[in-house]
């Protein structure tokens, strides 16, 4: 296998939020690299700075120290090109129908209408949203809205995909279906994915590598390689011994962080 190209570099990254004379150290001393076409998950207890790290990757938060590089270029303030971001919060546009929500990124990029319509149609079929093209988000279930948000980002085919607990608010069943869809898409197009979650099974199902964070201030506790063959069957996978193995090992490491006194 040829040496893989490094796509994203986080070097000695730290962020302290100041708010009057109160300072909250969110993350400290975070360094790791992400390879091209790799699927990396970041797990850690709530408040350990996962969203903060993703926001620094996306140029939404300026690091207090250290550096983020994407394709050897420092990320400074502005939103980097080629990057898609699926937010932890619901960010579909409530005044646009499902179809027009999914189309919005293509509209921004000036994709001509026939091609736009074709790509939106494909995305809607893929996400199982057929029949809801003209529905407004307020009439959808949480899972459907999340699928709209996901498709809206995927349809512009970003090379780098930042995802902040995109399935956090969903039931297990919907979640697993979306895992299958996401993996299929990833197999097809191979974007570089940074996927934040606090759900260990989700991380194991999806990722090539898992970065485990400590409690706040978040540091990298462990970078773990998931040795499960691809393509993965999201349902059968969970019944395998290898999965159980991975889970047990990571649960132990993460458990130390959850259980340790604050």
């Amino acid at each position: 296998m040829p040496a893989r190209r490094t796509r994203i570099v986080l070097r000695d990254l730290a962020k302290t939020f100041r708010d009057g004379n109160r300072a909250v150290a969110a993350v400290e001393d975070v360094s790791f690299e992400i390879f091209d076409r790799e699927f990396v998950a970041i797990v850690g207890p709530s408040g350990c700075g996962k969203s903060t790290i993703l926001n620094m990757l996306g140029g939404l938060v300026t690091p207090s120290a250290g550096r983020v590089e994407i394709d050897d270029v420092g990320v400074t303030g502005a939103v980097p090109a080629k990057v898609g971001y699926v937010f932890q919060k619901d960010t579909v546009l409530p005044w646009r129908t499902v179809a027009r929500n999914i189309a919005v990124g293509l509209e921004y990029r000036g994709v001509p209408r026939p091609e736009r319509e074709r790509r939106v149609r494909d995305a809607i079929a893929l996400a199982g949203l057929g029949g809801f093209e003209e529905a407004f988000p307020a009439t959808l279930s949480g899972g459907m809205r999340q699928r709209v948000a996901l498709m809206r980002t995927l349809v512009v085919e970003p090379e780098i995909l930042l995802m902040d607990e995109p399935f956090g608010a969903l039931d297990t069943h919907t979640k697993i279906n979306l895992h299958a869809e996401l993996l299929a898409l990833w197999q097809a197009r191979h974007p570089t994915v940074v996927f934040v979650t606090h759900d260990l099974s989700e991380a194991i199902t999806l990722a090539d590598r898992i970065v485990v964070m400590t409690r706040r201030p978040g540091r990298v506790k462990l970078v773990h390689e998931v040795k499960l063959a691809r393509p993965r069957d999201v349902i059968k996978l969970r019944e395998t011994d290898e999965y159980g193995h991975e889970y047990g090992r990571l649960w132990h490491v993460l458990g130390e962080e959850l259980a340790a006194p604050a």
């Binding site: 996306g58 939404l60 939103v79 990057v83 898609g84 971001y85 937010f87 919060k89 960010t91 546009l93 646009r96 919005v104 990124g105 509209e107 921004y108 990029r109 948000a149 809206r152 980002t153 512009v156 970003p158």
Partner: peptide, 20 residues
């Protein structure tokens, strides 16, 4: 976050003004 996500989808200031 609506504005940020529009920016990640490629929206310019003008487009974001109009659509968000």
């Amino acid at each position: 976050d609506l504005i940020h996500s529009a920016r990640f989808l490629g929206g310019s200031d003008r487009q974001i003004m109009r659509t968000v």
